[in-house]
Computed example of a mutant assay.
Amino acid sequence: MPTMIEQAVQARLVAPAPRMETVPATLRYDSEDPFAVRMDFPAPATLEGTDITWAFGRELLATGVDEPAGSGDVRVRPYGYDRTVLEFHAREGVAVLHVRTSELRRFLRRAQGMVPAGQEYLHLDLDQDLADLLRDAR
């Protein structure tokens, strides 16, 4: 069984004068970090000109495709019939993206197939995490 899935998505950047009309991105889910989803953006799509990865809760994404979710750096909400808005808040500003809801739902179904919601704790290695924490504390 795979431990990681990746799915390419096209996001539409909402901006007065976007540098790119669509932004290529990759959604990633790793069963070794079962509560998180990552969204990678390539350098040409970022203001800094470097690859950027945002990590946020899988539950946040799952909730946000149906109703507004999040109050921190990442916020997700439905928009119209088949769009979901993802907002990424940083010191430099806010990036607002539209992604097809069907693509997000497909990604979430694949992640759910790897690690069912509510069973994330079964994929954590708490003994190793504690050992790493104690080693780093020395």
Rank of each mutant, 00 (worst) to 15 (best):
Q7G: 00
R19E: 05
A69T: 05
Q112M: 09
R100W: 03
Q10D: 12
S102N: 05
A43V: 01
F41L: 15
S31C: 13
E48C: 00
R75Y: 09
E6V: 03
T26V: 15
P34I: 05
V99L: 15
L86A: 02
L104V: 03
A111C: 02
S102G: 07
P116C: 04
Y79T: 03
L61M: 14
D66F: 12
G93S: 07
R83K: 13
V94C: 11
D136S: 15
V65C: 09
I5G: 01
P2N: 04
D40E: 13
R28Y: 06
Q128K: 14
R83F: 11
A17H: 08
H89C: 08
M20W: 14
D129K: 11
P116E: 10
T101N: 10
F41G: 01
M20F: 12
S31K: 08
A36N: 07
L47V: 13
L134S: 04
D66G: 11
L104A: 02
R83G: 00
R110Y: 04
V37W: 02
H98T: 01
P24D: 05
V37L: 09
L27A: 01
A69D: 03
A11T: 01
D132R: 14
Y79I: 09
L27C: 05
E120R: 10
A131I: 13
V14Q: 15
A11Q: 00
Q112W: 00
A17K: 14
D33Y: 02
A90Y: 00
L104K: 00
H123D: 09
L47N: 12
D30A: 08
F35A: 10
A62T: 11
I52D: 00
Y79N: 04
G118Q: 01
V115Q: 01
E21M: 14
R138T: 01
R28P: 02
G80S: 02
Q7A: 15
A137M: 14
A55G: 02
L61K: 00
A69F: 07
Q119G: 01
R77P: 07
R19I: 06
M1Y: 03
Y81F: 13
P116T: 06
R38H: 10
G118L: 08
T53R: 15
L86W: 06
M114R: 01
G57N: 02
R77K: 14
A8L: 10
A8W: 07
L86K: 00
R91P: 06
D132H: 06
G93F: 09
L97Y: 10
S31I: 12
L61Y: 01
E92Y: 04
V14D: 12
G113I: 10
Q10M: 15
D136H: 13
R28F: 05
Q7S: 14
L27K: 03
R38A: 12
T22L: 13
V37M: 11
V23H: 07
A15R: 12
D125Y: 08
D51E: 13
A36V: 05
P24S: 09
D30H: 07
F107T: 04
M20T: 13
D82K: 05
Y79P: 00
Q10Y: 11
D73M: 10
G64V: 03
E59I: 11
Q128T: 10
E48M: 11
E120I: 10
M4C: 07
S102R: 13
R28H: 08
D33W: 04
R38F: 05
G64T: 11
V14C: 11
A15D: 12
F107A: 06
A111S: 05
R77H: 10
A90T: 12
R75H: 08
V37T: 09
P34S: 07
